[in-house]
């Protein structure tokens, strides 16, 4: 059965909002990647990285994620926004 496909193109505003929810979904994945990078800094031959370096890196990433999350979360559409409702049905397992 076919669902109502909806309009092919969205208004610019709605389009922006949908990409924002995409960004919200991608943010933890970005976090995973960034937090795993220090694992690459341990090679058996070379001198291991110093704790202080990793600490600075990890807390830097952390602060960055907090800031990004604050920006994205504040701009995410509300729960009853039609733009999101449509989006949810895309995301549902259908």
């Amino acid at each position: 059965m076919s669902r109502d496909p909806g309009p092919v193109f969205l208004a610019r505003r709605t389009y922006r909002r949908r990409r924002l929810t995409d960004a919200a979904r991608m943010l933890p994945l970005l976090g995973v990647v960034l937090f795993c990078i220090p694992l690459l800094w341990r090679s058996p031959e070379a001198e291991p990285a110093r704790t202080t370096t990793v600490m600075l890196y990890v807390f830097g990433v952390w602060a960055g994620l907090v800031a990004l999350s604050a920006v994205i979360s504040a701009r995410l559409p509300g729960h009853d926004d039609p733009a999101v409702r449509k989006d949810r049905s895309d995301a549902g397992d259908g």
Binding site: A24, P28, G31, F35, V58, L76, H79
Partner: peptide
């Protein structure tokens, strides 16, 4: 064991900034 303790806080951080995935649904 050095910086390993951070793992205990990195996990929840990732869950929290990914609230759009699971937490939103749980709360609803």
């Amino acid at each position: 064991s050095g910086l390993e303790y951070l793992t205990i806080y990195i996990g929840p951080t990732l869950v929290m900034i990914g609230w759009w995935w699971a937490l939103r649904k749980m709360v609803r």
